[in-house]
Simulated scan of single mutants.
Amino acid sequence: MSSDITLIVNPTAGRGRGAHAVRPAADALRAAGHAVRTLLGADPADALRRAREAVADGTGALVAVGGDGMVSLALQAVAGTGTPLGVIAAGTGNDFARSQGLPVRDPAAAARLTAALLRDGAARAADLGRVTTPAGPRWYGTVLASGFDSRVNDRGNRMRLPAGRFRYDLAILAELAAFRPVPYRLVLDGRAVETDATLVAVGNGTSYGGGMRICAGARTDDGLLDVTVVGDVTRATLLKVFPRVYRGTHLGHPAVTTYRARSVTLDAPATTGYADGEPLGPLPLRVDCDPGALMLLAPPQTRAKAPR
């Protein structure tokens, strides 16, 4: 494997933390003997083009410096290629890094771990969600959101303050005033389910929105997607249930139903899908688990304790 490492950077991630993370990350990788190249795209499309070129040219690893949005972009370049992905988490939510046991907002520590895993040849295979879109496949690492949670995501992305999970807490309150459950049609490994739902989340990973463990039992090594359906509930019930996502205890509520499937199709009127916090477009959308599509520079995944 090449000792050349490519950093792909979002300098605006985490209100500027991405830019500050580059030097300590690059210094730690160089100290481990790697030649480091840094990519800064003019826009997301240009950054993705450059990342794909680096992968095609045989870079030893692609390392995303930023938040979940930058990880999402990097996934499009490395999925199915065998090129390892490293993550220097410097964003606002950092759900992908947290779910994979990676350091958050400590770029030197994250880079040292990346270098050690490269040295030991210890990249591990991880599943990805693969969404079929008119523009081609899109891979994601955390959660596909639709319904109330995608509206919260949309509003949270437009808000400048506050930072972190509190931004999404405020977005929840703002969206509660107008939202109504919508009729969904789900197809889970060929089995149709029709239900009125407040939201449907399809998890490759466990969380979104800075630690909301909406699919708390999801794993990225089981070849399955975890589907969480929050049914037709009142605003008062939703207000009580939704904060429980930070511990994953919402899964025990009578209004919440969970499924596991290799393939999921979601359809609902006037509903947009988001994955890794990035918009996918309107439903219907088909999602498939892509087992082992990612070679990830991260510690071995441990089995999480069941939420209480």
Score class of each variant (00 low, 15 high):
Met1Ala: 15
Met1Tyr: 15
Ile5His: 12
Thr6Arg: 13
Leu7Gly: 03
Thr12Met: 05
Gly14Gln: 00
His20Ala: 13
Ala26Glu: 07
Thr38His: 10
Leu39Lys: 12
Asp43Gly: 08
Asp46Phe: 05
Ala51Asn: 10
Arg52Gln: 13
Gly60Thr: 08
Met70His: 02
Leu75Gln: 10
Gly80Ser: 06
Pro84Tyr: 04
Ile88Met: 02
Asp95Leu: 11
Phe96Gln: 03
Ala97Thr: 04
Asp106Gln: 12
Asp106Ser: 08
Gly121His: 01
Gly121Asn: 02
Ala125Gln: 15
Thr133Met: 13
Ala135Tyr: 06
Pro137Val: 02
Gly141Gln: 09
Val143Ile: 10
Gly147Val: 11
Arg155Val: 09
Met159Gln: 12
Leu161Pro: 03
Arg167Cys: 13
Leu176Val: 01
Leu176Arg: 09
Phe179Ile: 10
Pro183Cys: 03
Tyr184Arg: 04
Arg185Thr: 11
Val187Gly: 05
Val187Glu: 15
Ala192Glu: 15
Glu194Gly: 00
Arg219Cys: 12
Gly223Tyr: 08
Leu224Lys: 09
Val227Thr: 12
Thr228Asn: 09
Gly231Thr: 06
Leu239Phe: 12
Val241Phe: 12
Tyr246Arg: 14
Leu251Asp: 04
Pro254Ser: 08
Thr258Asp: 03
Ala261Phe: 04
Asp267Val: 00
Tyr274Gly: 04
Leu280Asn: 00
Pro284Glu: 08
Arg286Asp: 01
Pro299Lys: 04
Pro299His: 08
Thr302Asn: 05
